[in-house]
Simulated scan of single mutants.
Amino acid sequence: MNNTEVRQQINQYLDGLSSERLELVADFLAYLADKESEDATQELFDNS
């Protein structure tokens, strides 16, 4: 599945969620984005 297909599927799931569940998803995405950033930073340190 390519990125476009994944994003479309995610949007379909999001459309069916309550406000409370959407907040949980937003928190989880923020966690993943932060983790991604930390991992990228660590990789830079490891390669220097």
Rank of each mutant, 00 (worst) to 15 (best):
M1C: 15
M1L: 15
M1F: 15
M1T: 15
N2D: 15
N2L: 05
N2A: 13
N2S: 13
N2W: 10
N2T: 13
N2G: 14
N2E: 13
N3E: 14
N3W: 10
N3D: 15
N3H: 12
N3R: 14
E5S: 05
E5D: 10
E5M: 03
V6S: 02
V6T: 04
V6G: 00
V6L: 12
V6W: 02
V6E: 01
R7C: 02
R7Q: 10
R7V: 05
R7Y: 06
Q8G: 02
Q8V: 04
Q8M: 08
Q8W: 02
Q8C: 04
Q9H: 07
Q9R: 07
Q9W: 05
Q9K: 05
Q9S: 06
N11Q: 10
N11M: 08
N11T: 02
N11L: 08
N11W: 01
N11V: 01
Q12P: 01
Q12K: 14
Q12T: 13
Q12I: 11
Q12F: 13
Y13F: 13
Y13V: 13
Y13P: 00
Y13I: 12
L14S: 12
L14M: 15
L14F: 13
L14A: 12
L14D: 11
D15E: 15
D15S: 14
D15C: 09
D15Q: 15
G16E: 01
G16I: 00
L17V: 01
L17D: 02
S18I: 09
S18A: 14
S18D: 12
S18P: 01
S18F: 11
S18Q: 09
S19V: 07
S19K: 12
E20I: 14
E20P: 00
E20M: 12
E20T: 14
R21F: 06
R21I: 07
R21N: 07
R21W: 03
R21Q: 11
L22D: 04
L22M: 14
L22C: 07
L22N: 06
E23T: 03
E23N: 08
E23H: 04
L24P: 00
L24R: 13
L24F: 12
V25R: 00
A26C: 07
A26W: 06
A26H: 10
F28I: 04
L29N: 04
L29R: 03
A30L: 11
A30R: 12
Y31K: 06
Y31V: 03
Y31C: 01
Y31T: 04
Y31F: 10
Y31S: 04
L32W: 02
L32F: 03
A33P: 00
A33Q: 05
A33R: 03
A33K: 04
D34Q: 05
D34K: 03
K35Q: 07
K35M: 06
K35W: 04
E36F: 10
E36I: 11
E36K: 11
S37I: 03
E38R: 09
E38C: 05
D39Q: 10
D39F: 05
D39G: 01
D39Y: 07
D39L: 09
A40Y: 03
A40W: 04
T41W: 05
T41E: 08
T41V: 06
T41I: 06
T41K: 09
Q42A: 14
Q42N: 13
Q42L: 15
E43D: 11
E43H: 09
E43C: 04
E43Q: 12
L44R: 06
L44P: 00
L44V: 09
F45P: 00
F45Y: 14
D46A: 10
D46W: 08
D46H: 07
N47E: 15
S48E: 14
S48Y: 15
S48H: 15
S48R: 13
S48G: 15
